[in-house]
């Protein structure tokens, strides 16, 4: 029985503690967070994906392998319970409003890489009852797996299917655990965090670093000289379901 003594005491004790618990935890903050965040102010992280370059690489799965290995994402065979941060989705399903009966051969039944869109106006953040998911000042839609209660409201709210729930303990489904990143426990939602832990070390996201075809480009949208901005200047790009007003930060070159 994994309903441990601690959990039981926690549940029983919290009801007694009520709101004073939060005050007690807050009051403890030994040192206020005075340090500047590792990301300079005014940064807005974004990604530009070039599906053509990706397709030229054939059956390459370098980005998703790197991502899932770095973040201990379990490999679950059963589609009903799978967990994924970045994956291949057919063009028709990724862009349902762009359906045409005569798609170009380059796109017909072809996959595109999809991941969390790190929306400017994220519905998942709006609905979360505990602020376990929120938008950082640099645009990353972040997750706090310590706080998630597993209500899956964010999963229902995300129009991109970018959120996965841990239906069971993921550890048995992780072939090789990467020790410097946590796994997740059963009962919480997870998704791509734009590799915020790597960005903090001035490294690009793992998927970007792993892509040999340079099909994934990451950068600061607010910097006119950034790679992403120069790609957006020189190419026509799409975002997924723009009509929903979520303003994704993932752009696709067509």
């Amino acid at each position: 029985m994994s309903f441990s003594r601690r959990a039981f005491l926690g549940a029983a004790g919290l009801s007694a503690l009520g709101l004073t618990g939060k005050a007690a935890i807050d009051a403890f903050a030994l040192q206020p967070p005075h340090e500047p965040a590792s990301t300079p102010a005014g940064t807005r992280w974004a990604m530009v994906i070039d599906p053509k370059k990706c397709l030229e690489a054939g059956d390459c799965t370098a980005c998703l392998d790197a991502c899932h290995r770095t973040h201990n994402v379990p490999a679950i065979d059963n589609r009903a319970h799978e967990v994924k941060w970045i994956w291949k989705e057919s063009f028709e399903h990724a862009f349902p409003s762009l359906q045409t009966d005569y798609p170009p051969d380059a796109l017909r039944d072809k996959p595109v890489m999809v991941l969390c869109n790190h929306c400017d106006n994220p519905p998942c953040v709006r609905v979360c009852p505990t602020q376990a998911t929120w938008k950082r000042s640099d645009g990353i839609v972040m997750m706090d797996w310590h706080r998630c209660i597993g209500c899956r409201y964010c999963v229902a709210a995300c129009p991109y299917g970018s959120r996965s729930f841990n239906w069971s303990d993921p550890r048995p489904s992780i072939a090789q655990i990467t020790p410097d990143f946590p796994t997740r426990s059963k009962g919480v939602v997870e998704k791509c965090t734009f590799c915020e832990e790597r960005i903090a070390r001035d490294e690009p996201p793992a998927c970007v670093a792993a892509c040999h075809a340079k099909a994934l480009v990451f950068g600061n949208l607010n910097d006119p000289e950034s790679d992403v901005r120069s790609l957006l200047r020189s190419h026509f790009t799409l975002r997924r379901k723009p009509e929903l007003g979520t303003r994704p930060a993932i752009y696709y070159i067509v």
Binding site: A11, G21, K22, P129, T130, Q131, I149, R152, F165, G187
Partner: peptide, 23 residues
């Protein structure tokens, strides 16, 4: 019973979030 982490149910009060309809 639908919650994945029922032990954390009081997070809804502890971190009350008026933007969420669940609150």
């Amino acid at each position: 019973v639908d919650m994945g982490q029922p032990m954390r149910v009081f997070n809804v009060i502890l971190y009350a979030t008026p933007s969420s309809m669940m609150f």
